[in-house]
Amino acid sequence: MKKSRINFNLVLTLVIYSSVACTPSVSPSVVSPSSSTNAPNPSNSQQNPELEIAIIPWVSSTEQQDKIQQLEEYLKQELHQPVKIQLTKDYETAVNLLVKGEVKVAYLGPLSYIQAKQRNPNLEPIVAHIEKTTGRPWYTSVIVVNSQAGIITLEDIKGKRFSFVSPSSTSGFLFPSAKFKKLGMKPDRDFSEVQYAGGHDKNIIALAEGKVDAIAVNKSAYIEAVQQNLLPENQYKTIWESQPIPNSPFVISSSLPSELKTKLQRALINAPEGLLNVGGITATGYTVVQDEDYEPIRKLQTFLEKPTQNP
């Protein structure tokens, strides 16, 4: 897989208006960080301050924490300095830590990056992962329903129980919310109950346990749930899928020294495949990104925030 920068604008600018069009519809082997040939220099490790990185929650904390520890050890060796990666309790905590300068690096969702950038302009994305299921640096959102709930179209969710991931989630909130708005639907008015699970895996569990009738979730998380028989295909189905969404980026503060930024960017791009799944995504590598790649997310956010013309 060629890990070069891929510009999203040509494809994804159309997302703002086309993403609201209804479209019915393994974890890789882990490479031990100790295999790196770049052994850390003890004197450098003592001289350089600890680099703190925040990661948004995505899947089971135990599973995600294992991946995070492996990446942490890898980065210590590649950067030749102490590294501490923390898994935050929710999206908002990761954003707050980065905005306030309590961490210099964070792995954020596309929308949470935009929200962070609005609060602190001195932030920039440096890499985003390449989706293993598509081979591209983007993914999609899907709405999944219980087949027994009598939901065939999005309009059928009216009067039903629905769960988003988080108000800061791109696939678990922004894109499906924009679709609902385009259809003239208001979740807080039209659904019998609206929940926010806090993570894609938690949203899937809520649906599997019958706590809700429909959910918005990342498609790759849904596919994995089907493979694990958490959401058997004869009991659950997708009724909508979004247009491509630019993948979640690693975001840095401008206060990070340029040399360290370059080293971090290079280390992530060259990371073994087994170290890539810190966000719970099956990834094959990272590609260079920049702020303009996420402009479509800003536009969709603006669309969602505009007052409804026809109540």
Rank of each mutant, 00 (worst) to 15 (best):
L12G: 08
T13Y: 13
T13I: 01
L14C: 08
L14G: 11
Y17L: 15
Y17I: 12
S18T: 15
S19A: 03
S19D: 14
V20N: 04
C22G: 00
C22H: 02
T23I: 12
T23L: 12
P24W: 09
P24T: 14
S25L: 12
S25P: 06
V26G: 05
V26E: 06
S27M: 05
S27Y: 10
S27T: 05
S27A: 08
P28D: 14
S29G: 09
V31G: 09
S32H: 02
S32R: 03
P33Q: 01
P33S: 07
P33E: 01
S34Q: 02
S34K: 05
S34P: 00
S35G: 00
S35K: 10
S35I: 11
T37G: 12
T37S: 12
N38Y: 04
A39E: 13
N41T: 06
P42T: 09
S43E: 11
N44D: 02
N44H: 00
Q46N: 01
Q46W: 00
Q47T: 08
Q47I: 05
Q47A: 10
P49E: 12
L51Y: 03
E52C: 06
E52G: 00
I53P: 02
I53D: 05
A54E: 07
A54M: 12
I55W: 04
I56A: 15
I56G: 02
I56R: 08
P57I: 13
W58Q: 15
W58R: 15
W58I: 01
V59Y: 02
S60C: 04
S61M: 02
T62N: 10
Q65V: 01
Q65G: 04
I68W: 05
Q69K: 15
Q70W: 14
Q70N: 14
L71K: 09
Y74T: 06
Y74L: 12
L75Q: 02
K76Y: 06
Q77D: 08
